[in-house]
Design a protein around this nucleic acid. Structure first.
Length: 637
RNA sequence: GGCCCUGUGGCGCAACUGAAUAGCGCACUGGAUUUCGGCUCCAGCGGUUACAGGUUUGAAUCCUGUCAGGGUCACCA
């Protein structure tokens, strides 16, 4: 309808205004609730150009359009706003139209360029936690939304499977794992512990021994025992230690932290881990075997977690493969002058002209850093997918700077596609306890929320609450489990996705399992209720001979009619939150309608059928929008 | 300190490609309904959109400054 009006105005601008008008002047908005009308044209811009009052301009335009366009029933002008009433028949036509489309609002699949969405991208040394949940649900949802917008999609992740942190777990396992009577160290098989959890356990254990040893060293230093340490180290310690005098608490804590780092670097356990990394890089068979074995455990564990989350990937990239590509690219860039080498052999890029700093891309010992690998991965991906248009990186906002640099480097290396790379940056998830205090998750303080535990918890909560309400008679226990899963996960996903991604959020366990208000289960319930209605309502017929619709019905139709536009906006803005809020709004409108009219008991068969068709399309759009959030809409609950 | 992000009723959020009296949920108060699935609906209470200027016919939205919170500025990832 907007397009129709816009065209009419442009085509007849001479007739109405006696001058040409620009498209930009034509601005629509939803009509306010307390004003009669279905669509509003803002007429301030016209008043300005026509040098008359906005009201006069509105009258002129309104009279012309109502005459010209059949579907416009009437108009009114209030202040600078021209409100149109659109005919009931127009809305009924829209209903027929959307009813005929199974995937109403979706663009034709694969009709747009290929896009890659990267999300999750874990380290292989510890299990996934709450922070990953926001990342994964967000990335998955954005990928689904872009698919709905017609893009060909490749879902991927970069698995951070190499580096010192992996060696720490490996070393701790080798050194500290108890040995059973068969002479085996702990494995997922012989302990029953999920693979990623087992490896994570040893990562924590490494840290514990690491700290103990470092503290012992500091104790020695404090007693002036520097035997075995170089003069530089003792001098550095003395410098740090003596500068504590007279400082405030915060400064002292900072200095202590520095002393601790100094000591940590002297621990034998870290030196051993570093040695292991060198062996790994040299592909030492024993270390390599240990590495593949332990990573294998982790992948199996992750697989289970992803399965529970209901997400998938098309292609996986491993840092252990791509960091070498990155190193080659740095060599190339060095000869082409994009990078430069410092005296110590380290390689840098100078981004001061772009308002950034110098950034390291290769260490002085020739080993790769994170940036090196990311450059390699990006180039590798475009090689693998020649029709790839761009990559979307779902990564937390603490890496905003990193991605600015990465995209700049890719641009300077001459890759035209660099401008199509986008950092889907999201805010941190912090924890809110029952007292309402917000705090960061810290593994050392045991305040990290494990992803598996959390999912089990919300599904368990859904079980309790749904059993208490009871609409599950006659369901098998498998069906019930499936239902509790859908409700629990639906609530959790909705909770994490309804907020604008770039904003930080505080996770409140109680709120995440709420069933009322702006929640996933509230929307799921409306869907189930409609499905029940439809099951009892019998066969649906084509709409015809419906004379008029009620205000509630019209409000729903107007909202349904926006769905395609919302999908488009959610894709453009990379924001699942738009769809979440859209679905919630739809449900509220429907509940209001449901309260005010009867459907099944309506005696007028035409009207009854129209309401059923309307309900059916509401259910469909709920199902589609929840689907784009990765949430299932149960038939019963 | 430089750069980036955020700041909306008690709490959680929406509107942030400028437009009418800033919407919604939770909580609280009152009411409807005992139903086609009440995990429902309606109403009330509650905000000079952190603060101060500026641009504009019009600012939560854009600009400048201040304040507060977070992030980042590693030969970590």
């Amino acid at each position: 309808m907007e397009a129709l009006i816009k065209q009419a105005l442009l085509d007849h601008s001479q007739e109405i205004f006696e001058m040409d008008i620009s498209e930009k002047m034509i601005q629509f908005q939803k009509t306010r609730k307390d004003v009669e009308g279905d669509l509003t044209l803002v007429v301030f811009p016209f008043g300005k150009v026509l040098k008359c009052s906005p009201v006069d301009a509105g009258e002129k335009i309104g009279a012309f359009l109502v005459e010209k366009i059949d579907a416009l029933a009437s108009y009114s002008v209030i202040n600078g706003f021209l409100n149109f009433v659109i005919s009931d028949q127009y809305w009924l036509g829209r209903l027929s139209d959307m009813d005929s489309q199974e995937k109403f609002g979706f663009q034709e699949a694969n009709s747009k360029p290929t896009v890659m969405v990267e999300y999750s991208s874990p380290n292989t040394n510890k299990p996934l936690h709450l922070g990953h949940l926001r990342n994964i649900f967000l990335g998955y949802s954005v990928a689904e939304i872009l698919k709905a917008n017609g893009h060909k999609m490749v879902k991927t992740q970069i698995i951070n499977d190499r580096g010192i942190h992996i060696c720490k777990s490996m070393l701790a396992w080798e050194r500290f794992s108890p040995v059973n009577d068969k002479g085996e160290r702990e494995t997922p098989e012989n302990t029953g512990i999920k693979g990623d959890k087992l490896v994570g356990k040893y990562y924590v254990l490494f840290d514990k021994h690491f700290n103990t040893e470092a503290n012992k060293i500091i104790q020695g230093w404090e007693n002036a025992d520097f035997s075995g340490y170089s003069e530089e180290i003792s001098a550095e310690f003395e410098r740090l230690n003596s500068s504590k005098a007279g400082k405030d608490e915060k400064a002292i804590a900072g200095l202590n932290e520095k002393i601790k780092d100094l000591a940590k670097n002297q621990t034998t356990i870290l030196l051993d881990a570093k040695e292991m990394l060198i062996l790994w890089e040299a592909k030492d068979p024993q270390v390599y075997l240990l590495w593949t074995t332990m990573n294998g455990w982790v992948y199996k564990g992750f697989e289970k977690t992803y399965d529970m989350m209901g997400v998938d990937f098309d292609t996986l990239y491993y840092e252990s493969n791509t960091f070498l590509i990155g190193k080659d690219l740095v060599e190339d860039g060095l000869s082409s002058g994009v990078f430069f080498k410092k005296d110590d052999g380290s390689v840098w890029i100078d981004l001061t002209d772009d308002g950034l700093d110098e950034k390291l891309v290769l260490r002085s010992d020739g080993t790769a850093v994170y940036m090196t690998q990311d450059v390699g991965t990006a180039v590798d991906r475009f090689k693998d997918y020649p029709d790839l248009d761009g990559i979307i990186y779902t990564v937390g906002n603490e890496q905003d700077y990193h991605f600015r640099v990465l995209f700049l480097i890719l641009q300077k290396l001459g890759y035209a596609w660099a401008k199509n790379c986008y950092h889907l940056s999201y805010g941190m998830v912090e924890l809110r306890n029952s007292a309402g205090e917000v705090g960061k998750m810290k593994s050392r303080e045991g305040t990290v929320v494990d992803a598996d535990d959390l999912m089990d918890e919300v599904v368990g909560a859904a079980r309790l609450m749904t059993q208490a309400r009871g609409h599950i008679d006659g369901m098998s226990s498998e069906e019930r489990d499936e239902l509790f899963y859908k409700i629990g996960m639906g609530g959790l996903k909705y909770y994490l996705l309804k907020v604008d991604p770039r904003k930080g959020m505080a996770f409140n366990p109680e709120e995440s399992i709420e069933l009322n208000g702006n929640t996933g289960p509230f929307i799921q319930y409306a869907h189930a209720r409609i499905k029940s209605l439809l099951a009892k309502g019998g066969e649906l017929h084509n709409l015809r001979d419906v004379e008029s619709i009620s205000a509630e019905e019209k409000e729903i139709l107007k909202h349904l009619n926006c769905f395609p536009e919302v999908i488009r906006e959610a894709g453009e803005g990379h924001s699942p939150a738009l769809l979440a809020n859209y679905a919630f709004e739809l449900v509220k409108l429907y509940n209001s309608f449901y309260q005010s009219v009867t459907v099944l008991k309506e005696e007028d068969a035409t009207l009854r059928n129209m309401r059923l068709v309307l309900s059916s399309n509401v259910a469909k759009v709920i199902d589609l929008s929840l689907g784009l959030l990765g949430i299932k809409a149960p038939e019963r609950m």
